[in-house]
């Protein structure tokens, strides 16, 4: 379709050009029409040749470049009235802390947001205090450090992007605060990516040095290796820590990080739908009520008696 339209454009341009030259020599009308036909034919052949040459170098968008489409999983929050599974978020934070946090930051999440979602106030306070933050300088102007507070954001593993790249052979581990919203397929994609590392890349695939193969990652070659292995973490609630269990929990946690308003949003949405639909029905009834008299009235015309 595309190539055809290009061809038409090229051909018609060439034809227009030959036409213009032909117009200049309108006196020799008979010979110029012959010239026109030859010119158009020549342009057509040239365009076909160019197009064919181009098609030899063109790279089609292959399945590998798109990445394998992730399947849909039965997430606890699937459905209009379903909340996140907060026990899963709690386990997911543990997986993030023990596994992902070695490379990935979570810049946009503050400690306080975890309170009442996955941890108690005192737990989060203790977690925050384990990290050091820059404090106001003392009276002599020397920089000081202080333990973290609830209002601080969760610190990342690297001080800046350069340090992150230097530690990962030039690849930048993306910030995970909004990763579920930032990737096509959302939670399904994240889960598939984490569990989808095959033992061997498909035969014939050549990977750059240091890269790993993951079919769900567009292009297939991903800097992150497989990180989740069975029994990598030990859950406090005794859940067996299989690879897919950890992947589910951490994805649920990251989905919460992307959409912290999720549970409240669905509750408010339910209220809004009930109120707005009843108000709509009420407005329909009011309209019918008001118009009933107008719609059912009858006009009669009694012609005056003609005077004689």
């Amino acid at each position: 379709m595309f190539s055809k339209s290009i061809f038409n454009r090229v051909a018609s341009k060439a034809a227009a050009r030959t036409m213009a030259t032909a117009a200049g020599t309108s006196a020799k009308a008979a010979s110029s029409s012959k010239f026109l036909i030859t010119g158009a034919a020549l342009a057509g052949v040239t365009a076909s040749g160019l197009l064919y040459a181009d098609s030899l170098t063109a790279n089609a968008m292959t399945a590998a470049e798109h990445g394998l489409h992730s399947p849909e999983f039965d997430w606890p929050q699937n459905g209009p009235f379903e909340t996140f599974d907060h026990a899963s978020i709690r386990r997911g934070y543990q997986v993030y802390r023990e596994v992902c946090a070695a490379c990935h930051s979570l810049d946009r999440v503050a400690w306080r947001t975890l309170v009442g979602v996955s941890h108690t106030n005192s737990e989060v306070k203790a977690m925050a205090e384990e990290f050091e933050y820059d404090d106001e300088p003392d009276d002599d102007g020397n920089p000081k450090k202080r333990p973290g507070k609830l209002a601080d954001n969760i610190p990342g593993p690297y001080p800046n992007e350069q340090a992150a790249r230097a530690a990962n052979q030039g690849a930048l581990p993306p910030d995970l605060s909004l990763i579920v919203k930032a990737r096509h397929g959302g939670s399904d994609y994240i889960f598939s990516l984490l569990t989808g590392y095959p033992e061997e890349p498909p035969e014939g695939v050549v990977l750059p040095v240091g890269a790993n193969y993951n079919p769900y990652f567009p292009g297939g070659s991903i800097a992150m290796g497989r990180v989740l292995f069975d029994d990598l973490v030990e859950y406090e609630d005794g859940t067996p820590a299989t690879t897919s269990q950890m992947a589910k929990d951490v994805t649920q946690f990251l989905n919460w990080a992307s959409e912290p308003e999720h549970d409240e949003r669905k509750r408010q949405g339910l209220k809004a739908i009930i109120i707005l639909s009843s108000l709509y029905l009420l407005s329909v009834w009011v309209k019918k009520f008001k118009w009933a008299g107008i719609k059912t009235r009858k006009f009669t015309f009694t012609p005056p008696k003609p005077r004689k």
Binding site: P76, E82, T83, F84, D85, H86, A87, R90, G116, V117, S118, T120, E236, D237, D263
Partner: peptide
């Protein structure tokens, strides 16, 4: 699934 249930379970 809610936090209050989780809290009651492990809190």
């Amino acid at each position: 699934k809610l936090w209050k249930d989780v809290k009651a379970r492990i809190g």
